[in-house]
Simulated assay, not measured.
Amino acid sequence: MAKSYEPETKLHNLIGSGTKIIGNIETTESIRIDGEIEGNIASKGKVVIGAKGKVKGEVNCLNSEIEGALEGKVMVKELLSLKATSKLVGDIETSKLTIEPGAVFTGKCQMGGSSGMVEPQANSAKK
C-alpha cells in the first residue's frame, strides 16, 4: 500500500514566476506554481503554490502546500498545509489540515477520510 502523508521531494512540473496560464492543468505528477494560473488544477500528486504563486480556480490533488494565494475550492485527498504566508479564499475538503499562524483562510472546511479523489460538487452558498 502507498504510504500516506509523507513529504514528496520531487516536483516534476514547475510554473515559474512571471508566467501566467489561462486554462486547466491535469497531471499525474506533482506540480509547483510560482506564477499565475486562471483555471482548474488536477494532480494525482502534490500541488505546491509558492509564496509568489497565485491560483484562481479549483484544485484537486493528493496533497497540497500553499504559501501564496488561492481563490477557489480545494479538494485534497490526504494533507492540506496552509503556510503562514498563504491566503485562501474558498472552500476546503480534505482528510487532514494544518494551518500555520499568519495564514488567512476565508470559507468553509469539511474534513474526514475519503476513499478516492474528492469529486467537485455544486456550490449552494448563499450571497
Score class of each variant (00 low, 15 high):
89 V>G: 03
46 K>A: 13
12 H>E: 05
104 V>A: 07
117 M>A: 14
85 T>Y: 02
107 G>C: 10
97 L>I: 08
36 E>H: 13
77 K>F: 07
30 S>D: 07
83 K>V: 11
55 V>K: 01
117 M>P: 07
100 E>H: 14
76 V>D: 00
11 L>K: 07
36 E>P: 02
36 E>I: 15
23 G>K: 03
70 L>N: 08
5 Y>C: 05
104 V>S: 08
34 D>A: 15
14 L>A: 10
40 N>I: 02
11 L>Q: 11
87 K>W: 04
105 F>W: 12
31 I>Q: 03
26 E>M: 09
43 S>A: 15
97 L>H: 04
20 K>C: 08
45 G>R: 03
126 K>L: 12
93 E>P: 05
98 T>M: 11
97 L>Q: 02
119 E>V: 15
53 G>P: 03
100 E>K: 15
48 V>T: 15
103 A>F: 01
49 I>T: 13
7 P>V: 06
111 M>I: 14
117 M>K: 09
56 K>R: 13
44 K>S: 15
20 K>L: 04
63 N>I: 02
80 L>A: 12
118 V>P: 04
107 G>P: 01
42 A>R: 11
106 T>C: 04
12 H>D: 06
8 E>Q: 13
77 K>Y: 03
114 S>F: 09
48 V>L: 15
100 E>C: 14
47 V>W: 05
68 G>F: 00
77 K>G: 02
61 C>H: 05
51 A>M: 13
115 S>Q: 13
50 G>E: 07
6 E>A: 08
37 I>L: 15
67 E>H: 15
10 K>T: 09
97 L>R: 06
78 E>I: 11
118 V>F: 09
126 K>H: 06
2 A>E: 06
5 Y>I: 11
124 S>G: 01
54 K>M: 05
80 L>E: 04
92 I>L: 05
37 I>F: 02
120 P>D: 02
49 I>L: 13
96 K>S: 14
56 K>P: 01
43 S>L: 03
56 K>N: 11
53 G>Y: 00
91 D>T: 09
122 A>K: 14
98 T>D: 06
55 V>D: 01
92 I>R: 00
79 L>N: 05
31 I>N: 07
39 G>E: 07
43 S>H: 04
105 F>S: 03
120 P>W: 03
117 M>L: 13
67 E>D: 08
2 A>D: 10
17 S>E: 09
19 T>F: 09
7 P>F: 04
112 G>D: 02
98 T>I: 13
32 R>L: 02
84 A>I: 04
24 N>F: 04
82 L>T: 01
45 G>P: 07
28 T>W: 01
25 I>Y: 08
4 S>K: 10
6 E>V: 11
108 K>F: 12
27 T>Q: 11
72 G>S: 08
94 T>N: 00
